[in-house]
Amino acid sequence: MNGSTGTGTGKKAVTRSRIALAVVIAAVVALMVWNPPELYNWIKAVHVIAIISWMAGMLYLPRLFVYHSDSEVGSEQSETFKIMEARLYRVIMTPAMAIAWVLGLWLAWDGFGFNAVWLWLKIAAVLALSGVHDYLGRAVRRFADDHRDRDTRHWRLINEVPTVLMIFIVVMVIVKPF
């Protein structure tokens, strides 16, 4: 497989994902051109939707690695995990992360002018979350090549990292303690 999304339904999933991403980008651009009084709230809504999508993948992908680690190399189950992992990472997580970053930076600039300590702490945590995203992406490629350098315990621990970062980020955004 080498990390491919497969053929047939995989190509359809990628096509649907690209269409959805194009629709979201077009909608955001249209909102910015139209510039309604509620633009900030619309952008914030799309940003939150992107965050939810990204976090769903960040929490699910390490669980897939736990199960993939226990499967036999070359088995049908292992090959299925490869497809699931690649699609989740490429079709859902990465586009959601990109949308979250772009809109989040716009919101930070427009709403706060990057002038709040809590905002910089949140951005630092999102950078760390992006680093975890990259680590998981490298793991997707390693599993696709049947390299299994980590055991299930490692993936169970890694599964907690996005949760801790998410809690910190939510507290920064909602409570704004600094």
Rank of each mutant, 00 (worst) to 15 (best):
R138W: 15
G113C: 07
P37V: 12
E38S: 07
L105M: 15
V73K: 15
V46W: 05
I92K: 08
L105A: 11
S17R: 06
T15P: 00
E76V: 13
L88Q: 05
W120G: 00
R90C: 01
V46K: 03
A56H: 09
L136V: 03
G111T: 05
M58C: 12
T94K: 11
L61A: 12
R63I: 10
R18P: 00
S17A: 15
H133F: 15
W106M: 10
G111M: 01
I19V: 14
A98Q: 09
W120H: 11
R63D: 06
A30Y: 12
M93Q: 12
D110R: 15
I99E: 02
L136W: 11
A98K: 07
A124C: 05
V66S: 07
A50D: 01
A125D: 02
H47Q: 01
T94G: 00
M93W: 03
S69G: 13
E79G: 07
W109D: 12
M32S: 09
E72K: 10
I83H: 13
L61P: 00
S69I: 05
V102D: 04
I51E: 01
N115Q: 13
L136K: 10
V14Q: 14
T80Y: 11
H47F: 04
M97V: 08
I83A: 15
V132M: 11
M84V: 12
S78F: 02
A27R: 03
A27T: 02
R63A: 04
I83T: 15
T94W: 10
H133N: 07
M93F: 09
L61W: 09
V14L: 15
W101P: 01
W34N: 02
M58Q: 15
W101G: 00
L61I: 13
A45V: 05
N115F: 09
I51T: 03
A116P: 02
F65R: 05
P95W: 13
V23G: 05
A56C: 12
A22C: 11
P37R: 12
Y40W: 04
L107V: 09
N41G: 02
L21E: 10
F112L: 09
E72W: 08
R138Y: 13
W120Y: 10
V91H: 14
A20Y: 06
G74W: 08
L119F: 08
A108Q: 02
L105R: 06
R16L: 15
S75W: 03
I99Y: 00
K122A: 09
F65K: 03
T94L: 14
G104A: 08
I99N: 03
D134Y: 13
P62H: 04
I83K: 14
I19M: 10
A116W: 10
H68Y: 13
L61V: 08
L103V: 03
N41R: 11
W118F: 09
V91Y: 14
F65T: 01
N115V: 04
I43P: 00
H47E: 00
A56V: 07
L107Q: 03
G137F: 11
V73R: 14
V48S: 03
W106H: 06
P95N: 12
W106F: 11
V66I: 11
M55P: 00
